[in-house]
């Protein structure tokens, strides 16, 4: 091989590689999956591990979402360098109980992660979620930091505002995606709930989504489809969200909401703040896209 040939080969090979950056297309059949059941579990109690089990009972327990051998993602909000009392992140006990439930349902692996806003290691440590998962001491339960190599461009064919965004590979490939937002105040969107929590599995310049936040979140929800949404309202942040910092802004409710319908979960959670579902733009936009139910009268709430 002479030098000319070598250079030509290198060029062809590298061109081949750069053309082969994977792009994810979600098949229209999968997207058109029937509307999830507008059934919602509601439970109150001080033992959060037991509370998680209880709130899932009306939905048929974890077994109706996780099948043996499944790869499961539990996605809490670990966005901020705040401790559990400050109510900026999902409660570590709630996250841990969900992981345990998934393992008991036979999950082969349960991954926990979030693309944080503050420094990742600090968020994982301060939130208490990292140690809560580590304490399980189970090889199948892993909490890991976001690996930037895993963001994959995804076509958002049903989007009204977005046509493409980078989404975390593990979320796209898992068998069961469980979204576990903490219910809290948010300056721009009013509240941050399940749909907003999905921002933790996307790449790119997330701030720019704020320019049309409600519709953008709904567009993302067409491709990020949790099988189960569990809204953590064990304590809620009433002011200075989404990161708070002052425990005076926190109200303890000891409540969990669970639903296979992401829109219904958000819609009902809104009422905990004495607001109506239509006060949250993303809920309305997602409802209009047919992603779920926001009419409280049409949601079957089962207290457990």
């Amino acid at each position: 091989m002479d030098r000319r040939q070598f250079l030509r080969d290198v060029f062809l090979w590298s061109a081949g590689i750069s053309l082969a950056i994977p792009r994810f297309n979600i098949l229209p059949e999968a997207l058109a999956a029937e509307k999830p059941q507008a059934l919602l579990g509601l439970a109150t109690g001080e033992d959060y591990a037991a509370l998680v089990a209880r709130v899932l009972t009306p939905l048929g327990g974890m077994a109706s979402f996780v099948r043996p051998g499944d790869m499961v993602v539990v996605k809490p909000n670990i966005g901020w360098d705040r401790n559990p009392d400050q109510a900026a992140n999902t409660h570590p006990l709630v996250v841990r109980a969900l992981v345990v439930q998934a393992l008991e349902a036979g999950a082969a692996k349960v991954k926990v992660f979030d693309r944080t806003c503050n420094e990742q290691r600090r968020c994982y440590a301060s939130s208490g979620i990292e140690s809560a998962i580590r304490e399980l001491d189970d090889d199948r339960a892993v909490i890991e930091h976001i690996d930037p190599r895993k963001f994959i461009p995804v076509n958002i064919s049903r989007g009204k505002s977005l046509s493409e965004w980078e989404i975390y590979k593990d979320v796209l490939e898992c068998d069961c995606y469980i979204n576990v937002p903490v219910a809290k105040h948010h300056g721009l969107s009013g509240l941050t709930l399940g749909l907003k929590n999905s921002m933790g599995v996307i790449g790119g310049n997330r701030g720019s989504l704020h320019h049309n936040l409600g519709q953008n979140l709904a567009d993302l929800a067409t491709v990020i489809r949790p099988k189960l949404t569990v809204v953590d309202a064990t304590r809620i942040l009433l002011r200075s969200g989404p990161q708070g910092g002052n425990v005076k802004d926190v109200k303890r409710l000891d409540t969990l909401i669970a639903s296979p319908d992401p829109v219904a979960a958000d819609a009902y959670a809104t009422t905990l703040f004495a607001l109506q579902p239509d006060a949250i733009d993303s809920t309305v936009a997602a409802y209009n896209l047919g992603l779920g139910e926001m009419d409280l009268a049409a949601i079957r709430v089962v207290s457990a």
Binding site: C117, N118, H186, G187, L188, G207, H210, H211, N212, L213, S240, P242, Q243, G244, G245, N246, D249
Partner: peptide, 20 residues
């Protein structure tokens, strides 16, 4: 005239220094 306030969201002081 485009909504944003990402700055306010990230402002870390418990009584936010950026308000709207």
């Amino acid at each position: 005239g485009i909504p944003c306030i990402v700055c306010e969201e990230h402002c870390p002081t418990p009584d936010k220094a950026i308000k709207f």
